[in-house]
């Protein structure tokens, strides 16, 4: 009845409970963190604006991005995935959301920066609607926890108009 195996079994199965409670608490406490994110982004330069062979508009550009995401980090944060999307409407689509640039912030020490970056992914439309189009830049962040619930949020950064002619 009180063999080593029996005691080991009891110990292991009991330790699962406090562990689960601690993980749940860590994730639950994340909910009390009310972050204040500060970020700005503008178009630095339109590098190339063309029509692909298949007829779809394609824009390559560079962005001037600055952000302070330090307040997002808690003790349960593994990393924060940030990305900037271009969002616009076309007659065919009520929403076009295209990721232009993304970045993984591994810890709080690297959560504040300013830099000029080329787009990682080109802005490609599902057609030829981009000339003169008004486009909104939106910053999204996705908090990936050490365990528990994943948290997502976004903020609008700025809007700009694409040129009327291809370059």
């Amino acid at each position: 009845m009180h063999s080593v195996a029996y005691r080991l079994n009891t110990l292991v199965s009991f330790s699962v409970l406090p562990l689960a409670l601690m993980l749940a608490a860590a994730s639950f406490l994340d909910g009390f963190n009310s972050p204040t994110v500060q970020a700005h982004a503008q178009i630095h330069k339109i590098r190339r604006f063309r029509k692909q062979v298949n007829g779809a508009d394609e824009v390559n550009l560079s962005l001037n991005i600055s952000m302070d995401m330090e307040s997002l980090f808690t003790w349960n944060t593994k990393q924060v995935f940030v990305f900037v999307t271009a969002e616009y409407q076309t007659p065919k689509n009520s929403l076009n959301q295209i990721s232009l640039w993304d970045h993984i912030i591994p810890d709080k020490e690297h959560a504040k920066f300013q830099r000029v970056v080329p787009n990682k992914y080109p802005l490609i439309d599902q057609g030829s609607n981009l000339r003169g189009k008004n486009i909104e830049l939106v910053l999204h962040w996705h908090i990936m926890p050490k365990s528990g619930k994943m948290i997502q949020d976004k903020m609008s950064l700025s809007t700009f108009n694409l040129p009327e002619a291809y370059s």
């Binding site: 995935f81 689509n93 929403l95 295209i98 990721s99 996705h142 994943m150 997502q152």
Partner: peptide, 26 residues
Amino acid sequence: AGEIVVFNIDGREIPIVHRVIKVHER
């Protein structure tokens, strides 16, 4: 965009977990 989705591809048995980078909604 940004959501991590699990998707099945026709002819592939194992589902894939990846992040959405582009969305076009009709």
